[in-house]
């Protein structure tokens, strides 16, 4: 029984990182109504910036974390400028934006491949102290505690920005109606840029956390996360903040439990099967109809 609880705990930690990744993904969908398929590449660059800040510049991890968030945020704004804004200005269909974001993702990955010489990098030994605690018979590492704490802080920060600041109000206004927002004096393109920055910063944070947790940073690391992030936001409901959080946690726990008790080969089949089931039974996701107030998506 302890083993089950141990795995649920591990799944919770992993799920938190999925949630962090998915939050930025769902935020862009909620505000701009497009899927940013370059989100995985932004995440990967966040991991690299964090890594290089530690290895090349020799700076402490918390600096790397902030640097990764800023850099990934800026890269994400760049993705908006290159892949989305020109198409939006022309009034192209949403499908075109999906294709162009795939294109930007490929370019970002090629650049990372060149920069990393196709190698898998690791954070140097001792970047993060390896300490374990025993709580009620469960083994909890300091790393897990820090991961959960960072996720909690970042989610609180995101909710604070969205629901308690003028910028957050403007983001939600743009999500509901771009025209009304513009008539109120809101610069819609600036708000789009801000949304991409926040989304990218969250992805960058997730990149560093996952890079450390799995001790591996490479140019392809974003792809599986993009696919999983997709499942997570479908589980939770596209554009729903609560949904991305809950979806991430559920995904992490189901994945961890199915790897532990069934087989790792089967876990993806279970997770994607879960996605099909949700699409059939509740196409708007688990939180589609419920938490309307914690939803940025237009109606």
């Amino acid at each position: 029984m302890t083993l089950v609880f141990q795995q649920i705990l591990n799944g919770f930690v992993v799920g938190g990182t999925y949630a962090l990744f998915a939050l930025g993904f769902t935020l862009i969908f909620g505000v701009l109504h497009v899927l940013n398929l370059a989100h995985g590449a932004v995440f990967m660059w966040g991991a690299f910036v964090g890594l290089f800040t530690v290895t090349s510049l020799g700076l402490p991890l918390y600096v790397a974390f902030i640097a990764a968030m800023l850099a990934a945020g800026l890269i994400s704004v760049l993705v908006d400028l290159v892949a989305f804004r020109p198409l939006r200005a022309r009034g192209s269909p949403e499908f075109a934006a999906i294709i162009s974001s795939i294109g930007v993702a490929q370019i970002l990955m090629s650049l990372a491949q060149i920069a990393s010489q196709t190698q898998v990098y690791r954070f140097p030994f001792g970047t993060f102290p390896i300490v374990f605690y025993n709580v009620l018979g469960l083994r909890i590492s300091l790393q897990q505690i820090v991961i959960v704490a960072s996720v909690v802080v970042l989610v609180a920060l995101l909710l604070g920005i969205l629901f308690a600041t003028s910028f957050g109000r403007q983001i939600r206004a743009v999500a509901i109606s771009e025209r009304t927002a513009a008539l109120l004096g809101i610069s819609v393109s600036n708000i789009h840029g801000l949304t991409f920055f926040i989304s990218g910063a969250l992805a960058g944070a997730a990149g560093v956390i996952i890079g450390i947790a799995f001790n591996s940073v490479h140019f392809l690391m974003g792809e599986p996360y993009l696919l999983r992030g997709f499942v997570v936001i479908i589980l939770g409901g596209l554009g729903s903040i609560t949904g991305a959080l809950a979806g991430g946690l559920i995904f992490g726990m189901v994945q961890t439990l199915s790897i532990a008790f069934l087989s790792s080969a089967l876990s993806d089949a279970i997770l994607f099967g879960m996605m099909f089931l949700i699409l059939l039974v509740r196409p708007s996701g688990l939180f589609g109809a419920l938490h309307r107030q914690v939803r940025v998506v237009r109606q």
Binding site: S166, A173, I176, S177, A181, L183, G185, R292, Q299
Partner: peptide, 19 residues
């Protein structure tokens, strides 16, 4: 064109931006 999910007060506060 009221922003439906936002509160009455939030709608009004958004109006202040145009100033």
């Amino acid at each position: 064109q009221i922003l439906g999910p936002l509160s009455v007060e939030e709608n009004l506060l958004l109006g202040r931006l145009a100033r």
